[in-house]
Structure formats: structure tokens, C-alpha cells
Amino acid sequence: MHELSVCQALLTQVENLARERNASQVLSVSLGIGPLSGVEPALLSQAWPLAAAGTVADNAELLIEERPVRVRCSQCGEESDATANRLLCARCGDWRTQLLSGDDLLLLQVELETAYV
């Protein structure tokens, strides 16, 4: 259950951002997460309220965009969808592919309520 550790790291970033912008509260936090990041979105969603309780992000909604697993074949050049444990080219079946997306673990956007709104 390393999702709580990830949540605490996320919260530190969000709190820093809120402080820099003089925000009175954080309204939402948007993440992009792929299955090959090793972080489970459902567990992250459960851990978030625990981590955020009593902070400026107490009421913030956690929005998670699940990123697809996509690969580019180094042999035939095809770009195709794949799954976490099968990163093969969908056209020629070769295993020598490069990951285009799917290992994302990104803080995309934070929505803040600031004093100047």
C-alpha cells in the first residue's frame, strides 16, 4: 500500500502550490496515471481523503485520468494499444517496442480558490 506514500508526496506539492498562490482552499487536483506506474488509481482515491484531512486540500476533489498503454514498434514503426504485461506490437507481434504512454504518474493540474477571485 505505497499509495499513501504517493498521496503524501502529492499533498506536499499541492500544499506548496497553494501557499505560493495564497490560495484559501484547493478545489480539485487532477492526475494522469498509467498502469505501468505501479500506482493503483482506486487505492490512491481511497488514500487521498486520509492524507488531505485537515489541510488546505481537505475538500479537494481528486480527479484521475487513467492513461492508456501505447507502444511504438522499433521494427515496423506501428503505434498500437497494449496491456501492462503484454507490450508487443499489435501489427507484427515483435517485443522490441518503446512505451509511448502508460507509466505516467503526473500531477496535471490544481484548481485553487484564491483571495483575488
Binding site: 504517493v6 508526496a9 506539492q13 478545489l27 500506482v39 504518474l105 500531477l107 493540474q109 490544481v110 485553487l112
Partner: peptide
């Protein structure tokens, strides 16, 4: 994206790894 959102807040694009401190 630095503009007011539907819920009245300001959206800030971050694009930073969650584990960037680590």
C-alpha cells in the same frame, strides 16, 4: 488555462511527477 473555472477557482497546470521530491 490560467483562468477562472466553472467552480470559480483558478486552474494551474503543473505537469510534475508525483514523486518529484523523491
Amino acid at each position: 488555462k490560467l483562468q477562472k473555472t466553472a467552480s470559480g477557482g483558478e486552474a494551474f497546470t503543473v505537469l510534475k511527477n508525483l514523486l518529484s521530491e523523491n
